[in-house]
């Protein structure tokens, strides 16, 4: 059984919940009082993760931290189709790694802006917003060209990968950080596609795709 140290409002924890739901894998969630309790900074929690951040998973005694590393592990272990983490195809694997790194960028800009607005983290908000827009512009253009090729996802796979899931919540909640997606139509179409993946679940602040809308 997988144990996930989780805070419902964390995008990085949500990435794990989303993949586990899509793969239909059962897990136990241990709520961490990230805010206002700052439990992840407590001496007790630092015995679980000395870096003092979430998410962390423990799978049958095997412990792993860092959102994108956990996605890699979970997809490798629990997706027998090998599509979510396409390790057997060098091109797709390279692209997946590339867009997972891109997701570090969206987390450190768009999602950091959200922490500033929501919880008062002392960041330079204008720098974060500018950084997020720069990434969103690149992503929007990339997805537009993908669509021209008849492809729906950030890699050239016909199937979504963990890279889509890693980027998705940073983008989907960007407005909480004051980053509008109005100028990124290809991104908006892509977020609609992600929300229609079978097994998709929301996190607080998101809504399910409209009922009955075309696939």
């Amino acid at each position: 059984m997988i144990t996930l140290y989780n805070w419902d409002l964390s995008v990085n924890c949500y990435k794990q919940r989303l993949l586990l739901s899509i793969l239909d894998v059962e897990y136990e969630s241990i709520p961490v009082d990230f805010y206002p309790g700052w439990e992840h900074k407590s001496a007790e929690f630092k015995r679980i993760n000395p870096l003092g951040h979430i998410p962390v998973i423990v799978d049958d005694g095997y412990k792993l931290r860092d959102a994108h590393a956990i996605l890699t592990y979970l997809a490798s272990k629990y997706d027998p189709s090998g599509r979510w983490y396409p390790a057997s195809d060098p091109h797709l694997l390279g692209e997946t790694a590339q867009w997972m790194l891109f997701a570090e960028g969206t987390t450190n800009t768009a999602s950091a802006a959200r922490l500033h607005v929501n919880l008062g983290y002392e960041f330079d908000i204008e720098v974060l917003r500018e950084g997020a827009h720069e990434l969103f512009r690149a992503l929007d253009e990339h997805l537009w060209f993908r669509e021209r090729e008849g492809l729906d996802w950030v890699t050239s796979s016909p199937h979504p990968t963990i890279a889509d899931l890693a980027i998705f919540p940073d983008v989907m909640l960007s407005e909480e950080g004051g980053i509008s997606r109005l100028d990124y139509p290809a991104i908006r179409r892509w977020t609609d596609r992600v929300r229609r993946i079978e097994g998709f679940v929301v996190m607080p602040g998101m809504f399910e795709a409209a009922k009955g809308a075309p696939k």
Partner: peptide, 22 residues
Amino acid sequence: SDTTIRRFQQTIFSQDKPILEN
């Protein structure tokens, strides 16, 4: 626990947030 109580209320609060901001 405090964590469980907060979790419930924070979820509700976060669901309201995009509605308010739009």
